[in-house]
Amino acid sequence: MAQYLELLSYGETGWGDELIRGVLITIILAIATLPLGLLFGFFIAVAKNSSEPLLRNAAHIYTTIFRGLPELLTLFLIYYGGQMAMSALWMLVFGAEFEVNSFLAGIVALALVFSSYASETFLSAFKGISHGQYEGAYALGLNRGATMRLVILPQLIRLALPGLSNLWLNLLKDTSLVSVIGLSDLLRNTNIAVGVTKQAFFFFFVACLIYLLLSIISSLGLGRISNWAHRGQGGH
């Protein structure tokens, strides 16, 4: 037991500090992806909800691609494809090499995946808002922007929250894939610790427990957000 505590201690002999640094990278990656994914997802959902067939089809192509590809493959395509495209572009413009950052590639790939799922969640939330809400808002003289902001969005958040909560938990788990392209997140630092100490089962189990802890903390936070979103509903 003491030997395991030693392995997790902070400092030269233990791996506690490395793991904590990894957890921070994992959290930062997920939090940095979230606004991007939500924003993209929302606009894709608006496009899918539009009466214009061109826009609807364009949005559906987006979802089909990024929900159909394995997350790992999306990541590799963004990382290697982005590397090649940016290098070519940089060579042309500045005549210098360009290195794609694995953190940035991770954010882009995860945001693409997140937004394609989020757009479906937002879309079904849009479908759950009755047309009378729009008509009522227009009858009160609100313009389209104000209707969206003051009438539709608050209801949309409430309806989409359960789905978005699941997507956030998935996002937390998907960040682990970025360890494969060399970002020192929790899983990669765990891998390094295993390589040095040969305590594979112990360290990977600890990593799993940390991920579990992150999702428990998230669930608690999401519960509070859900209470806030239901504040006008009474009884919750």
């Binding site: 938990l169 788990k173 998907d174 960040t175 682990s176 894939l177 360890s179 494969v180 899983l187 765990t190 891998n191 295993v194 040969k198 305590q199 594979a200 089962f201 112990f202 990977f204 189990f205 990593a207 799993c208 991920y211 579990l212 999702s215 428990i216």
Partner: peptide, 23 residues
């Protein structure tokens, strides 16, 4: 159910594949 749904599949795979080597 909570363990397998709350942790990344990649971490679970490492746990089994590399973890088995310890035993």
């Amino acid at each position: 159910s909570y363990f397998f749904r709350g942790t990344p599949l990649l971490a679970q795979t490492f746990l089994v594949y590399y973890g088995a080597g310890q035993f």
